[in-house]
């Protein structure tokens, strides 16, 4: 039997079920209460933690790992590291990207998400990494303070991308402690340990 699909390729039954849950106060309420029930129950959370091996503190998330990880399996389990390159000028980006790629290829220990304030799409795309772009401070023209805007974006990114760590940049290179953290990921790999 051929599976019916929606116009964007999802199984039709799944779309219908999701729509029914979303549009029903009763069903969505049940779902919310179930989640709250699990989250509020120490034993159930403990079981979920063991079953899904979350003990490493690295949530599974599908996000492009980039060309340096080509051929590496289960990239979705590698931690996502935010490389905060806000303020780094375009002229200094090439060296920074090269450094990140070199560490990533050697450690096979992380997936970078590049945060830039210059639209260097082509340069980042060459490495196959995802990137986010913020309004540059010198282009800022809103009543809100730019620092507050940046703080909000950083918080949003940390949440939505399940960021494991953030490393800063200066003078076209990773800051020294950030580079050390990434280097540690060559051997510090708690997410590979089973706690079951």
């Amino acid at each position: 039997m051929k599976l019916r699909r929606s116009s964007d390729g999802k199984p039709a039954w799944l779309v219908s079920a999701a729509r029914a849950v979303r549009s029903s106060d009763r069903l969505s309420g049940v779902g919310n209460r179930a989640v709250e029930g699990v989250q509020g129950n120490r034993t159930l959370v403990d079981i979920a933690t063991r079953v899904f091996a979350f003990s490493g503190g690295v949530p599974v998330i599908y996000l492009r790992g980039g060309a340096p990880l080509d051929g590496v399996e289960h990239q979705e389990r590698l931690p996502v590291v935010l490389v905060n390159a806000v303020g780094v000028e375009e002229a200094h980006l090439a060296g920074l990207l090269q450094q990140v790629a070199e560490v990533q290829q050697r450690t096979v220990g992380f997936r970078p998400l590049l945060l830039l304030s210059v639209p260097a799409f082509r340069e980042v795309r060459a490495y196959g990494w995802p990137m986010e772009l913020v309004v540059a401070q010198q282009d800022w023209d809103f009543p809100q303070q730019w620092d507050d805007y940046l703080a909000q974006r950083l918080a949003m990114i940390a949440t939505r991308y399940r960021i494991w760590s953030t490393v800063g940049c200066g003078d076209g290179a990773l800051d020294p402690m950030g580079a050390r953290i990434l280097e540690r990921l060559a051997t510090y790999r708690p997410w590979e340990t089973s706690f079951l």
Partner: peptide, 20 residues
């Protein structure tokens, strides 16, 4: 202008991307 990465560009599932 501002840029908002698509779920295709991120390699992210649409369920995670939609809240973003």
């Amino acid at each position: 202008y501002e840029y908002l990465p698509s779920h295709g560009a991120l390699g992210m599932t649409s369920a995670l991307w939609q809240p973003l």
